[in-house]
């Protein structure tokens, strides 16, 4: 179920004095099974772009084609599309509508008019996928959940629709480090075991570096880079110029390079950094 975007442009509050162009002339393609990170400074258009993938927004110009169907066509089945392209929003408080966890997860499947038995199975399965124990949490009040649990419930609500593509829009914001780790492990597992195409929007470069295979960098509504993760972070200077940061570990290695260390330009994990620094030091000693 590939996503194809051709010459997409979009303006916010079109036709009012507050009109503002958010996206201009975007072209990209997301293939089955990819893990794509979308990054960019605030107001670069990340969320606006992603909300076109499941037709929550309709382009002013250009086309969005999912699985060969142009979403602007009248006959496009948007309800089915939105089950295939799941979207998890940043704030769980806006996406939990029912009083209990189990009922909320059943919200999507119920909209598909599935038989009760099937809905029940989907809830069971989705809760298992995000690591919420069914007996403990099925009847649990939504408001009695912690921040991390709420986010897992929100992800389960989308998984219960059996999506082939999942969009995660800054889902770890505001969580403590332990909570972040839990959510990231759930997302990793889903991508590896279920082969769900994952589109991950985040402000955290550490998470992007650790998760994404490919990164799309947006700046002022345009695609600045679209490449493998290691390649994108080679443009460290440019990323900082547009208002992004580097992964924390690269903040250190980049300064070491400036201090004369011989290290690769893009380093995405602590292990990688340890080995590169160790190698550089050894070589230095040999040279000396």
């Amino acid at each position: 179920m590939p996503i194809e975007v051709n010459n997409l442009s979009y303006s916010y509050k079109k036709g009012t004095p507050f009109e503002k162009q958010v996206l201009s002339n975007i072209n990209l393609k997301i293939n089955d099974g990819e893990f794509v990170g979308i990054i960019g400074p605030t107001q670069a258009g990340k969320t606006t772009l992603a909300q076109h993938f499941n037709a929550l927004l309709v382009p002013d110009q250009g086309r969005v084609i999912v699985n060969g169907v142009d979403l602007a066509e009248k006959k496009a089945d948007l309800v089915k599309l939105r089950h295939n392209v799941g979207y998890v929003f940043q704030n769980p408080d806006y996406q939990l509508f029912e009083p209990t966890v189990g009922e909320d997860i059943a919200f999507g499947p119920r909209n598909q008019n599935l038989p009760p038995k099937e809905i029940e199975n989907r809830v069971l399965e989705a809760m298992a996928q995000v690591g919420l124990d069914y007996d403990t949490f099925n009847k649990r009040d939504i408001f009695a959940l912690s921040g991390g649990q709420k986010r897992r419930a929100a992800i389960a609500g989308v998984l219960a629709c059996k999506p082939q593509i999942m969009i995660l829009d800054d889902v770890t914001a505001g969580l403590d480090p332990g909570g972040r780790k839990e959510i990231i492990n759930v997302i990793k597992k889903l991508h590896h075991e279920q082969e769900i195409t994952t589109i991950y929007i985040s402000n955290s470069m550490d998470e992007i570096a650790a998760l994404a295979e490919r990164i799309i960098v947006l700046n002022q509504g345009q695609v600045l880079f679209d490449d493998q993760t290691g390649e994108v972070f080679l443009h460290a200077r440019k990323l900082i110029d547009i208002g992004l940061e580097l992964p924390e570990v690269m903040n250190i290695t980049t300064r070491l390079i400036e201090a004369g260390f011989n290290l690769p330009g893009a380093i995405l994990s602590i292990d990688q950094a340890v080995h590169a620094i160790a190698a550089s030091l050894q070589k230095g000693q040999v040279d000396a």
Binding site: L56, V79, H83, Y94, F97, N111
Partner: peptide, 16 residues
Amino acid sequence: DKIIKAQMARGVAFDR
């Protein structure tokens, strides 16, 4: 706006 979008994303057809 956010809540309606979240419900649309899970199959409620507000726009149809």
